[in-house]
Design a protein around this nucleic acid. Sequence first.
RNA 1: GCGCUUGUAGCUCAACCGGAUAGAGCACCAGCCUUCUAAGCUGGGGGUCGCAGGUUCGAGUCCUGCCAAGCGCGCCA
Length: 586
Amino acid sequence: MKQKLTELISQAVETLKANGVLDQSIQPSIALDRCRDSSHGDYASNLALILAKPAQLPPRKLAEQLISAIPHDAMIVKIEPAGPGFINFFIDPFAQHQIIQHIHSERAEFGLSHVGAGKKIQVEFVSANPTGPLHVGHGRGAAYGSALANLLAAAGFSVHREYYVNDAGRQMDILATSIWLRYLEECGEVVVFPSNGYRGDYVREIALDIHQSTHNEYRRHASLVLEDIPADEPDGGDKEVHIDALIARAKTLLGESLYRDFFQIGLNNILKDIEEDLHEFGVDYQQWFSERQLIDTGAVEKALARLRAGGHLYDQNGAIWFASSQLGDEKDRVVVRENGQYTYFASDIAYHMNKLDRGFEQIIDIWGADHHGYIPRVKAAIKALGADDARLSVLLVQFASLWRGDEKVSMSTRSGEFVTLRQLRNEVGKDAARFFYVMRRSEQHMDFDLKLATSKTNENPVFYVQYAYARVCSVLRQLDEKGWERNVSLGMENLALLTEDHELSLITHMARYPEILERAALQYEPHQLTSYLRELAHEFHTYYNAHQFLVDDAALRNARLNLICSAKQVLANGLGLLNITTPESM
RNA sequence: GCGCUUGUAGCUCAACCGGAUAGAGCACCAGCCUUCUAAGCUGGGGGUCGCAGGUUCGAGUCCUGCCAAGCGCGCCA
């Protein structure tokens, strides 16, 4: 419909060019919007307002000329100039009824588009350090990322979902050592747990698990473990120095190979937990990409060699630096430390080189908003590797601050005092959690009130949308109980009987669905879909309350059934993209 | 101090490349269940779009300055 109108308008522009009203050189981009106010018709164009200046005509007058140049079309009932120079289009309402037939034949495909043209696009999201279970802060990134990925797929992109596993680095050593110390406790050794270690219960559980399956294989005497270790912070020492010494001791006492084994068991345990957790949350990946593999296979070295060849690296104070400030970053960054270790950034450069090499035309990284300062250096790295940094879009997800009514819940992974994503799912359910997370624009700060989200009342908008779906199912059950059978073709032949305002409004809303999907995908804004679904559900509930569907007149009854079944289909398609269930009764 | 993000109804948030009278939900007030599920519907009150300038036919939206909040500014990840 929109496309058709755009075509007609551009024909009118050509006509005016031929008449000499418009200059030949004018190449307007034709803007056509849905009207907010139905008294303005169905669509409006501001073309005359834009062209008024170059055409040197009053906009209102130009609008009139454009209107008379627009070819006649059966679908258009009326075209009129309005306001300062808008052109309003009124569409034949019965022409819009065809959307019902269309939805009926397209079914789950309705709304899908090909704007993505099969372009390879990667969405990397969550990528939380595997040092503990996911918490509610990760939930937002998970819900947003997977909804976005689904939207992009629906828009015809070839989507690759990926989780970057930070399985190298100091945090992981701290975790492995924390588990080991708990393991030693299981063995009966008496050690003092470091203040900077991971204190969560899951650490103890993993330790217990390992102890049960391996017995005392990794046991070492507490006296050897603690011998000459610098004091921890509570004892007047430095907690960082203390834990680093413990890590080094673990490596010495276990030996490189056993330490690795132990490390790996801990990692696998946590990764498995994260993977299950996300799966149950409706989030699945094509690939889990290991940072350590990047280092082990020499990819980091290769990436740095490429930067070196391009003249982007230099040595200073015993470290190797990337001259990122030459490429838009605020300062240069270390990639290899004085001690010869790669920084996290070094492997991230290699990771992004790898992404580029895999041929993704668009790379989307979804990060927590606290990482925003990191964007310029990654963009700089991409430029230094010789690629266009526009291929990378970094989308930031603001942290959700957590509340229990009026009380703010503090969260810290180290202290182990945090609400896990799993707890949230258990309390609120997957559907409500996902909808709630995606409802807001990602870069908008968000207060997540557990009390509100756990209240299974109408305050949870997801129930409202699901209820609309369930109501259609209920009507179909009632139809059956009354001994009537649905006659789809009879209904289709009688769509013209759908003349009530509620019916026309519902039809118009359903017709908008493909436009909403496309826009939500291209703008990376899944919240547009949730808003749309709420509106659609509202249209349905209003209609439901105003009119009886199961009327005696078979023609009207079946026409109405076709209408509400279309609504049911659109609701199912939209909720499906959000990975939210469609209960048949509530 | 510098940088990024955000400021819209009492609260939580929308507003499609700049468009016509800024919209929802919750909360509040008043109505609607002998009729397909009241997790619903109808009506009502509630706004200096942080503040001040600027750009133009037109600004919540773009530009500048200021104010406020969050975050960032490691050879951490």
